[in-house]
Amino acid sequence: MAELKPDQAARRSPLYRRHQALNAQFEMVGDALLVSRYGDTSMEPRLAISLGLADLSTLPRTGFKGAGAPKWAASQSVQLPEQPNTAVTQPDGSLIAKLSHQELLIVSDVEAKSSLVTRLNQHKLPAATYSLPRADSHSWLAVTGLLAAEMFSKICGVDLRTHKFAQGQIAQTSVAKINAVIVRHDLGTTPCFYIFSDITSTEFLWDCLLDAMEEHQGVTIGVAAIRSLAAGE
């Protein structure tokens, strides 16, 4: 089978040069081209339990905002978080995050099987409800592992230790001086934190995270390792 390259897909991650420099192997997940694994290591899933960093920026995501957004979202047959700064996983694996009383962020599952983002994007929106596309404005990274919170303590002021920052909790804060939305979304029993931040600063944030991860022997991981963690393997 021919080797996939980032410029063959409709969308490429702002980090594709970093991935190529690390000998990444790519795979198609739905319509998204993601890093499958780096190099030929089979150790990634095991290392990811300790500390891993993945780029999910090519997966679907969107958002909605406005005084009419909560009422409209409630009519869309989805499970909505009750409180701002919390997120709820949907039965199809996608995630709805409530960023304020009137703002929602919706992200796909990592297998891109959910059609929720596409479905909601196709809706004609009622008055005072505004589309807030996130795919081109925000990058999407995932930090996995038992040492993730300790690593974050060097670059983020919010206490993300798992007994302080519960599954589904959100922190809108500063990570390495970059504004970011952090969502705790565990993979199986492994802690996992999604980071959504300004897409133009992605390479800087990626480098800062790798630098902070170095003392904990953190590694870059592909979607194969994420899949393995989610399955609890």
């Binding site: 701002p84 700064n85 304020s100 002021g157 919010v158 922190a171 809108q172 804060t173 500063s174």
Partner: peptide
């Protein structure tokens, strides 16, 4: 009021 206590550098 939305996000809780944070460093002043976030404001």
């Amino acid at each position: 009021p939305l996000n809780g206590q944070r460093n002043i550098s976030e404001f």
